[in-house]
């Protein structure tokens, strides 16, 4: 199963830093993640009622990388050995 790493306040909300979830795309992984950790819905998905059916949109500014490569494509494929990292909106410098 792909590994999901969580960062910043997502860790507090989910109560974990790292978790394995099923899913063959970014969207599927996120849907599965919020099923396991419903508290994350508010942080990750817009239109939360749809979230559990997999139709929720990922909030703007949430940053997702696959093996360290940022993507904004929910259909981007994810394999068993991939690491999907999810960051809440962030800024700085």
């Amino acid at each position: 199963m792909p590994t999901v790493k969580l960062f910043a306040n997502l860790r507090k909300v989910a109560g974990t830093k790292e978790v394995s979830v099923t899913g063959a795309s970014v969207g599927a992984v996120v849907s599965e993640l919020v099923k396991q950790y419903p508290a994350l819905v508010a942080n990750l998905l817009e239109h939360s009622p749809d979230a559990l059916s997999g139709n929720g949109q990922i909030c703007p500014h949430v940053i997702i990388t696959i093996n360290g490569h940022p993507t904004d494509d929910v259909n981007a494929p994810v394999t068993e050995s991939d690491v999907v990292s999810i960051f809440p909106p962030m800024a700085g410098g």
């Binding site: 910043a8 990388t65 490569h69 990292s85 960051f87 962030m90 800024a91 700085g92 410098g93």
Partner: peptide
């Protein structure tokens, strides 16, 4: 704060 960028810069 700004240090939040540490993990993401490292991640990528």
């Amino acid at each position: 704060g700004t240090v939040v960028l540490m993990n993401i810069m490292n991640n990528i």
